[in-house]
């Protein structure tokens, strides 16, 4: 019983980074930009979160700075794919490797590595926190409670606002959007920056609130899992939320199993999230019975395609 309760209590802390990173990717990709750089942007967020805390001694400012830093770096990506129309896959991969090097370098240069930070105090939501088994779900830091609200806001924005409709139009059929007078590149630029901010927040969550320090390459592939999660969620925020909880649960289960005396090789444990990712991807790719229903195909039609206005001869 204690094992289950402590497992459940650990899920949010591991699910939130997946959830926020996936949400950021969804915002960018619904506008038709394939964003593979999440891993790199998470590292930028993680580093500048810790840096912000060490400089300003405030967790709130630290998180804001992390979001700004990730957005700032994503401008580079935006210019590459929107202005120079570099292949989005290549640009995304390049961004990851660039950010890995950059954060490792800056961490040492500014002396931000291996300094512990204190993060937020946990908020106890009494009396929910007294519930059996799930009680520990309600003793969490504020960002955990904020995450569903952010999802709610983004889902409302995407599906119930004029601007969200335009953003989706840009991702589905930029030519039609252009004909309707929507500034395609402006929307894509904004979507890249906003998505990067959320991904940066996901990274800062890991360093400032979860691990409570900066370690080189500390995101450990979570950005890649988020990319897979978005495909699994078929670009829907709420499905991504559910998927993040699933992945968080699996990651939280591993230390519990070890504590319960189940002996697992260390590297098998490290491998598990990726095995699950592969399994999920294969499951998604398997032909479904009702594949012909257009609802099944949720990938934005123009994902990864650069926009070039049809020449007006």
């Amino acid at each position: 019983m204690e094992i289950i309760s402590s497992w459940v209590g650990n899920i949010p802390d591991l699910a939130v980074p997946f959830a926020l990173a996936a949400l950021g990717l969804i915002v960018t990709e619904r506008a038709g930009v394939l964003a593979l750089g999440a891993e790199g942007l998470m590292l930028v967020g993680a580093l500048f979160g810790v840096g912000g805390y060490l400089l300003f001694d405030s967790t709130g400012i630290a998180l804001l700075l992390a979001m700004l830093a990730a957005s700032g770096v994503s401008i580079l990506f935006a210019v590459m794919v929107l202005v120079l129309r570099i292949n989005q896959v290549i640009a995304g991969l390049a961004l990851v490797f660039f950010c890995q090097g950059l954060t490792a370098l800056l961490g040492i240069l500014f002396g931000w590595a291996s300094h512990p930070v204190s993060g937020f105090e946990a908020w106890t939501l009494w009396p929910l926190s007294e519930l059996p088994i799930v009680g520990r779900l309600f003793i969490q830091n504020p960002v955990v409670y904020l995450t569903p609200l952010i999802f709610f806001a983004v889902a409302i924005y995407l599906n119930h606002s004029m601007s969200g409709l335009k953003l989706r139009a840009v991702g589905e059929n930029p030519q039609a959007a252009d004909a309707a007078g929507i500034p395609v590149l402006t929307y894509r630029f904004a979507a890249i920056l906003a998505g990067a901010a959320l991904i940066g927040l996901a990274g800062a969550y890991i360093s400032v609130l979860s691990t409570k320090m900066w370690i080189e390459d500390m995101t450990g592939g979570r950005g890649w899992i988020a990319v897979a999660l978005v495909i699994f969620a078929r670009w829907s925020p709420w499905r991504a939320f559910a998927g993040a909880i699933l992945f968080g649960s699996i990651e939280a289960l591993i230390p519990q199993l070890a504590a319960a005396g189940v002996r697992l090789p260390q590297y098998f444990v490290f491998m598990t999230p990726y095995v699950v990712t592969l399994a999920v991807m294969i499951w998604v790719a398997l032909p479904k019975r009702d594949q012909n229903k257009p609802d099944q195909k949720n990938q934005p039609d123009a994902l990864g395609e650069p926009f070039i206005r049809e020449e007006r001869r």
Binding site: M162, L165, K166, R168, A169, E172, N173, Q175, A176, A177, A179, A180, G181, I182, P294, D301
Partner: peptide
């Protein structure tokens, strides 16, 4: 035609109108 395919008729027409 310049229609955004997964959108409904109403969404398509709303997009091109003077909001």
């Amino acid at each position: 035609f310049k229609l955004v395919s997964p959108f409904t008729v109403a969404q398509n027409i709303l997009l091109s109108m003077n909001q």
